[in-house]
Every structure is written in structure tokens, then in C-alpha cells.
């Protein structure tokens, strides 16, 4: 367990360079920041500023070119792929801009899926998934497949899916970008509410200044560097 005072995420002097043909793109140029336990953190910045890149590093689906990323005090740079997978399954939840639900599973089955991956018994998994579906306000739509749901409902399913395993950290890259403003607002409200009742740390990226203003901690990126907002 990390100590009370220890931040959940520490990003230390991180650089990330993507090769692009003969040149290379420096997406992050020395970022250092900390995210508090249980916080609601927003990353903002213009397009191409490196938000997604940073979230990928924190989400342990990519490695920094240099510098260190610690989650719960652990540096995963040298971990084998399977260990990273297990870490993500246990500790992290992902919410994507375009939902990325499994189209052949119903809403409640999508929520259930990560539990079954963790070998939670089927009956228990179903019960927890139904409870979560209720919690994210899916109502009667639990048996419908993603293709039959609205964008807002899809993102509710995605939130349920991300939270059902009780992750310490939920990563959401522009979760409202595919939604209209009003729906986006209710989704952010839902995320706040879920944070309050689960205690999970949320880190989201957004272009929307109004959403950014609701955050407890805010980081602004520009050209791969942290700047004052």
C-alpha cells in the first residue's frame, strides 16, 4: 500500500519521442507531475500537445523514452508484457473517447467482462455487473448491445466497465469528445459521483474549459511541456 502522503501517480522528467519516417516527434519534453490519491485530475491543452501520450504512459500501455512513471510507487519500465497486463487488469480502468465496447456483448455483459477475465465466478460477476449498471444509470438498457445504445449510454457502460473491478486509477482520454455538451456534462457528473463512492483516482483529458474548471487538480500541456493555465 502506498503511504497516505504518497501520490498515486508520479511522473518524473518524462520524455517521449515517436519515430516518424526519418524525423522524430517529441511528444513529451520533460514532464514532471504528481497526481493525488482519490483526486479528480484533468489534463488539458491544445491538440497535439501530448495529453494522450501522457495518459498512455500513466496507463502502462506505453513506455517513456526517458524519465520515470510510477503508479502506486512502482516503476513498470522493465516489467514483462504479461505482468503489465495483470497490473492493468487489477489496478487500472480505461474509458475511451470512442467507447470501444465489445459490440457482440450486451451492456451488462460488457461490464461483466473484466470480472470474468479475473475469474470471478459467473453468478457473482453478473450480480456485480447489474449493480454497476444500476449505479451508472443504465436502467432498462442493460440487455442492449452497444450498437443499440446512444453515445451517452455507451459511455455509461464504459464507466461501469472501468469501475467494476475497483481500480485505484481510472484513465479517460477525452471521454466527452464524442458526446454533445449536455450529455458530456452528465457523464462528467457521473464520473465525479463514482469517484466519490469508489474512492478511485480519475485522470481525464479534455479540450472543454468548463469541464477543466470542475477539476480538483489541473495540468495544462503545450508542445509536450507543462505550462501554467
Amino acid at each position: 500500500m502506498p503511504g497516505i502522503s504518497q501520490p498515486l501517480v508520479q511522473v518524473i522528467e518524462v520524455h517521449k519521442t515517436y519515430p516518424l519516417g526519418h524525423r522524430s516527434v517529441e511528444a513529451l519534453r520533460g514532464v514532471t507531475l504528481e497526481m493525488p490519491q482519490g483526486g479528480f485530475v484533468v489534463l488539458q491543452g491544445p491538440s497535439g500537445s501530448g495529453k494522450t501520450t501522457l495518459l498512455n504512459l500513466v496507463g502502462a500501455i506505453d513506455h517513456p523514452t526517458s524519465g520515470r512513471v510510477l503508479v502506486e510507487g512502482r516503476d513498470m519500465a522493465a516489467w514483462p508484457d504479461d505482468a503489465l497486463s495483470h497490473f492493468r487488469a487489477k489496478t487500472l480502468g480505461f474509458i475511451f473517447q470512442n467507447f470501444n465496447l465489445i459490440p457482440v456483448l450486451s451492456a451488462v455483459e460488457n461490464i461483466e467482462y473484466p470480472l470474468l477475465l479475473q475469474r470471478v465466478p459467473r453468478a457473482e460477476a453478473r450480480a456485480r455487473a447489474l449493480e454497476m449498471a444500476e449505479g451508472v444509470g443504465l436502467g432498462d438498457s442493460s440487455d442492449q448491445r452497444p450498437g443499440e445504445l446512444s453515445g451517452g449510454q455507451c459511455q455509461r457502460v464504459a464507466i461501469g466497465r472501468a469501475l467494476v473491478t475497483h481500480p485505484a486509477l481510472v484513465i479517460a482520454d477525452e471521454p466527452t469528445a464524442n458526446l454533445d455538451a449536455a450529455t458530456g456534462r452528465t457523464i462528467i457528473d457521473l464520473m465525479h459521483r463514482m469517484r466519490d463512492c469508489t474512492g478511485a483516482t480519475f485522470v481525464i483529458s479534455t479540450h472543454d474549459p468548463e469541464i477543466a474548471s470542475m477539476a480538483e487538480a489541473r495540468f495544462t500541456l503545450r508542445d509536450g511541456r507543462l505550462v501554467e493555465p
Binding site: R88, F94, I102, L117
Partner: peptide
């Protein structure tokens, strides 16, 4: 492809 990326992010291993 995107679905594969998503379930991998959710913790599916290469073997899965």
C-alpha cells in the same frame, strides 16, 4: 484492431 487495443488495455495478455 481498436477492439483488440481496448481489451489489451483492460488487461488481456498476448496469450489471451
Amino acid at each position: 484492431v481498436r477492439e483488440i487495443g481496448a481489451v489489451r488495455a483492460m488487461g488481456l495478455t498476448r496469450g489471451d
